[in-house]
Design a protein around this nucleic acid. Structure first.
Length: 514
DNA sequence: TTCCGACAGTGGGGTCGCAAT
DNA sequence: ATTGCGACCCCACTATCGGAA
């Protein structure tokens, strides 16, 4: 199969908005692919190389995107491109930038202009064809003539959609159904959807729920097989070597094999959570920094168990899994590993858990249906997270031109807090969230009247407009002059009734620091 | 016919490792 | 030593399609 065939399919996917038609176009290519080509083709049409990220971004590719010259040599095959990407992924060490550039030059010179544009979008992770994992999963099912549910289940258990595609096309539904949870191979984690309030979440899910703390850390999935313990993040990146203190805690548990789901974060000496940034600094590093007195240690908190001593618990309802977890962590010395929470609470008790979580410095709570199985890889209603929302009235300092479907619209707005001493507003963040198409059109219409400068990326505005912003909190920043940045800012509404002199001050933002 | 779950897109701040300067 | 790039932690929200009700 030629790269051109895949590029043509991607074009067909982009050209239609109907998801069924997108899946049909992808299914056609998958049927035509040779067995060895299924994995790269599946991965590419889901928007990423089979090898994962390759250390190549916009900067490295800028010179290739607009190259309209004719391709050199024979047309590129899927296999040749896949091999080139494998070589690229293996490039590291001194002089690697030059070697990488040479490899890219060889690949792109053999590609036609349309193929070059496809490859640039693929390698930067910005295919933007309206199909990712969800649509490709449907396409795999269609191409193999099997139910989508069978593909979905094999995918969640193996963590790999390209591998699942090969299984489906080669072995059909029997091969898919043979997929099992394996200790040592991570499962795609179940995710929580945002809930509007504790009351609403309880109303949605009924009385048979747990209400657990939601901690501001990183998701971990820990597998234990005898004395071997391995740890993965939410995206199934293995971080075992960087978090030995987590492995040590799990190795001490009274079990032979286990798959545990939880959250980890750094606590201070009083047991209160440290800033998320401190937890984050541990990920990507090689260890806790044992030589350093100020080493930041991670504490694990587990809220689910998917496998225990040879028994898969994935399909059991949550209350069965929680019983198993409670048994595993029953001893006093392991009690600290349990995520705090309450089972089947009355409304007042549920509210008390939320209050307790916030008082202890945590983010909020997660409400979970006790009868729900572990729906790996999905963001279903069975788990709902509830966090308090803070609002600020801030001054709009500028706006940036959007990309993709927001091309031509002033999208990402710059936000300033009032200087309590009467100086110019201090920038504390940006946001593009919460805007309807109507609001984007209004910004694009209105902002030019307030422009004081027009840099290529957008507009700088006279500080007159006030906008009400929802945030989860504030964090320390080296980027912004006030030393503060907003966390997860989104637009609620513009405040034409307020002037910039009535906006919230930098002190009000600082008050949101944890 | 209407409603709603799932998906894709559009990006935000911060931190690290790595290679180049 | 510093700088810039890329990857990856955390994440909210709207528009849209298509099946469920």
């Amino acid at each position: 199969m030629l790269l051109a065939d895949v590029v043509a399919a991607s074009g067909a996917v982009t050209a239609t908005r109907a998801r069924t038609a997108k899946a049909a176009a992808i299914a056609d290519v998958l049927r035509a692919a040779a067995p060895a080509e299924v994995e790269p083709v599946t991965a590419w049409l889901a928007g990423e190389p089979r090898q994962g990220r390759l250390g190549v971004g916009w900067r490295s590719l800028a010179g290739f995107a607009g190259d309209e010259t004719a391709p050199a040599g024979e047309p590129l095959t899927v296999t040749a491109v896949d091999d080139a990407l494998t070589a690229l992924a293996a490039t590291s060490g001194p002089g690697s930038a030059a070697r990488r550039d040479a490899a890219l030059t060889a690949l792109f010179s053999a590609a036609a202009p349309g193929e070059r544009r496809f490859l640039v979008r693929l390698l930067t992770g910005e295919l933007r064809q309206g199909a990712l994992e969800g649509v490709v999963l449907e396409a795999v099912a269609a191409a193999a003539g099997v139910p989508a549910a069978a593909v979905r289940r094999a995918f969640m258990l193996t963590g790999s959609l390209p591998g699942t595609a090969t299984t489906a096309l080669a072995g059909g539904v029997e091969a898919l159904d043979a997929a099992r949870l394996q200790v040592g191979r991570p499962v795609r984690p179940m995710l929580a959807s945002p809930g509007s309030s504790l009351e609403q979440a309880l109303a949605d899910l009924g009385a048979d729920v747990t209400v657990e703390f939601k901690l501001d850390g990183a998701r971990i999935q820990v597998h234990r097989d005898g004395d071997e313990v391995r740890v993965w993040t939410r995206t199934l990146r293995e971080v075992t070597d960087g978090v030995p203190e987590l492995a040590e805690r799990v190795r001490a548990l009274p079990c032979r094999t286990a798959v545990l789901d939880g959250e980890t974060l750094a606590l201070d000496d009083d047991g209160r959570p440290r800033a998320f940034q401190d937890t984050m600094s541990r990920f990507g590093s090689d260890g806790p920094g044992a030589d350093d007195d100020a080493a930041v240690l991670l504490s694990p908190f587990f809220f689910d168990v998917l496998h225990l001593d040879g028994v898969d618990l994935l399909d059991e309802p949550l209350h069965v899994r929680l019983d198993a977890l409670a048994g595993l962590l029953a001893a006093d010395e392991h009690a600290a590993l349990r995520m705090p929470g309450i089972r089947s609470p009355a409304a007042e008790a549920a509210a008390q858990v939320l209050d307790d979580a916030l008082a202890a410095g945590h983010e909020g709570v997660v409400v979970k249906a006790l009868d729900a199985p572990y729906a790996a890889g999905r963001r279903g209603k069975a788990w709902q997270k509830v966090k308090p929302v803070h609002t600020l009235d801030l001054v709009v300092l500028g706006a940036e031109w959007g990309y993709g479907r927001r091309s031509g619209s002033l999208s990402n707005i710059h936000l300033g807090a009032r200087d309590p001493d009467g100086g110019a507003p201090v920038m504390v963040g940006k946001t593009f969230k919460g805007m309807t198409d109507e609001l984007l059109a209004w910004q694009t219409r209105t902002f030019p009247e307030l422009a004081r400068e027009e840099p290529p990326w957008g507009l700088l505005l006279r500080p007159e407009l006030v906008v009400e912003i929802a945030v989860d909190g504030a964090q320390r920043s080296t980027r912004y002059p006030g030393g503060l940045a907003l966390r997860f800012a989104r637009v609620l509404r513009y405040r034409p009734d307020k002037t910039a002199a009535e906006a919230d001050t930098l002190d009000a933002v600082r008050a949101l620091l944890a």
